[in-house]
Simulated assay, not measured.
Amino acid sequence: MKKIWTLFAALLSTATMASAQSAMSCCTKPATATETFAMLASNEDFSGGHDAPLPYTYAGEGETIEFKTTDGQTSKAFEIKSNIRSDKYLFVIHEWWGLNDYIKKEAAQYAKDLPGVNIIALDLYDGQVATDPDQAGKLMQGVKTDRAQAIIKGALLYAGPKAQIASVGWCFGGGWSLQTALLAGPKAVGCVMYYGMPEKDVAKLKTLNTDVLGIFASQDKWINPEVVAQFQKDMAAAKKKVTIKSYDADHAFANPSNPKYSKAYAADAHTAAVAYLKKNFKLKG
């Protein structure tokens, strides 16, 4: 009899654990697109494909600004204001290295290419900048979705109620460029995403107020052609327009500090991005 009760208790314990695991699996909030991409930081091939950026110091125009975020905190960003009064804003979102001087240089280039547009390079790492892949991976994995969204929402409030918002980002920032367009709601007028993780929730994609320019690399092992094809299907299901430019290159081909950098493809992609943004902002010339 004692053996029977022991067996019964063991079976009851196993059933209880299975039930708890089942409840956890069905009730746990699924990872977002950006969180899914952040998980790649633990992949040695992914981190190994990103050489540390070469030393560079930006010494051009622009200034650091601070604004309130929707979670009761503050955030800093790098801003280059338009020479004329404007409600047009381009949010520039950094790679997994953080808001370093390379990103400030990119912001300055967009300011030159898009006269009449205010450029704001956001900082989703709250002041932290990585100088090696291991550190970058930890920072990317450490980003909390709620905090990143609060920063973006704060920047939207900073831009003002009449703001027209477009976004551009690379890698980690590519995924967040699309999320920015979603958060901007009716203010969104453009979105450029370089090899970032697409949003997979069609219901969310249906809320987009803009089309999307997606720039990808056919040799990318992570944001690969299959991921891009699914994104096209999801956007079609959401009845939203997406233009895909795919290059015979590898992930991060537009980053000058990447050993697989392609100067020609990077230049062509940038030209396409500028043309798209000029059209969506309805800029003259």
Rank of each mutant, 00 (worst) to 15 (best):
A9Y: 10
G60Q: 07
S75G: 02
S47Y: 00
K240V: 10
I120E: 02
W222K: 10
R147F: 00
S218K: 13
V212K: 01
H251T: 10
Y194W: 13
R85N: 05
K138S: 07
A273H: 04
P161M: 13
D211S: 15
D134W: 02
A272Q: 12
F8G: 11
K144P: 00
K284Y: 02
V227M: 02
F78T: 02
G214E: 06
E226Q: 12
A41K: 01
Q141A: 10
L90S: 00
K2E: 15
Q128A: 11
E226A: 10
K260D: 13
F37N: 03
A272T: 14
F172M: 11
P225H: 04
F231D: 05
E79C: 05
R147Q: 04
K3N: 15
E35G: 01
E63R: 15
K81M: 03
C26V: 09
Q164P: 04
A33I: 00
T64F: 09
D250V: 14
P55Y: 06
L283K: 03
P161C: 13
T131S: 13
N118T: 12
Y194A: 09
G175T: 04
F37W: 07
F67Y: 10
E199L: 03
A31H: 07
G62P: 09
F172K: 04
L122I: 06
P225A: 09
A272I: 09
F8M: 12
Y194H: 11
I103A: 04
A155W: 00
K3A: 15
G127W: 04
V143S: 04
A130D: 03
Q21Y: 10
M24E: 08
L40E: 02
V242W: 08
Y102D: 10
Y194G: 05
L7M: 12
A236Q: 13
V143T: 07
A33D: 00
T131K: 13
T6Y: 14
L54N: 13
E63G: 12
K245S: 14
E44V: 06
D146P: 00
N83R: 02
K200D: 09
D201L: 03
E35A: 07
I244G: 06
A264G: 08
D201T: 10
W176F: 11
T74G: 01
S42V: 11
S19M: 08
E106T: 14
T28S: 07
Y261F: 13
L156I: 13
E63M: 11
A249F: 10
M140R: 07
M39A: 15
C191I: 03
Q135E: 11
H50A: 06
T14Y: 05
E226C: 03
A266L: 12
L122D: 01
A249I: 08
A275Q: 15
G173W: 02
D248L: 12
A111N: 01
A31M: 11
D126P: 03
I84Q: 03
S13G: 06
I80K: 00
F46D: 05
D234L: 05
A254F: 13
A163F: 14
L182C: 05
K263N: 11
K260S: 14
A15L: 08
K278R: 15
I120R: 01
A236G: 05
D113K: 14
S22C: 02
W5E: 13
T70S: 08
A275E: 15
T210F: 06
L7S: 13
Q109K: 15
T6R: 15
T210N: 14
K68I: 06
F67M: 04
P186W: 10
C191P: 06
A254K: 11
I84M: 02
D134N: 06
N255W: 12
G72S: 06
Y194L: 07
I244Q: 11
D134H: 02
K204I: 00
